[in-house]
Design a protein around this nucleic acid. Sequence first.
DNA 1: AAGACGAAAGTGGTTGA
DNA 2: TCAACAACTTTCGTCTT
Length: 307
Amino acid sequence: MIRKTLKECPECASRNIFRDVEKGETICRDCGLVIEDRMVDFSQEWRDFEDDRDGSKRRTGAPTTQTQFDQGLGTEVGTTADFYKLGSEKERGKFFRLRKWNIRISTAIERNLKVALAELKRVSSFLKLPRSVEEEAARVYRLAVQRGLVRGRSMESVIAGALYAACRRHEIPRTLDEMGEASGIEKKEIGRTYRFVTRELGISIRPSNPADYIPRFASALKLSPETQSKAVEILEMARDIELTSGRGPTGIAAAALYVASLIHGEKRTQREVADVAGVTEVTIRNRYKELIKKLKFTKQIEKTKKK
DNA sequence: AAGACGAAAGTGGTTGA
DNA sequence: TCAACAACTTTCGTCTT
């Protein structure tokens, strides 16, 4: 079923937005932009009506979740301990039939997911990622397993790839290095599976914005909020003159931060900035050179130096 | 002595024939 | 499928503070 929606396309501002209910996709008919392709539904089903004295609106049950192998809806049909509580022969037969079925339903996929999602939780909590990202990553992983994309790859690397993709979609990117440290997988491998999985599943990800990295890098360097916003400002100017396209976003973010730290007299060495950003000093130098050349920052830096 | 700078060679991925 | 290519890294020598 395909329905027209009331949304406006953020790309071309057309109102020709249609939603394919089965696929869960929302697409702009004019420019082809996929607006909510495979996004997690963030709306909360589970609510708590604390103020309701009579409790009539209170719902029961936990919210469903992607991060448990059965989405939190599983049943277990008893153990043999329960068997002896049953009375008649008829009831005992029923018990075994039900139990057999339940085991049969737990296919290889389910078992895989159970292990995988535990690992996913471990990595995501190591990186202190928000729950929404964890859910998205779990969904990506689930899809990957169902399509048999894990075959020939280690489970861990696919998990890392899924998490990396989920971070990017939620615009709170982590570097491949950080992901590698958290998961124990080499960053090359993560990058590989990330590209493979997103391509196979048709997940579209827009290039990450350097500004997304600024808050994290800045706090790691203990820079003031003023310096931080200066860095973002620099990034905007850089983007306007096409300095950002084609370059690694972390390198640009690092260079902007470095320049901002000079201007505000909170100097950090290139080495320090390079370390938290996961790039080399050389890359920072190159970006830095481009920045001061094209953005007449030279004077400002000279000024603060003299003070 | 530490940091900044730049040249040169190497790596892994993308692109286009 | 292969070669050219761009971005980034590694390494190292030199200059500056």
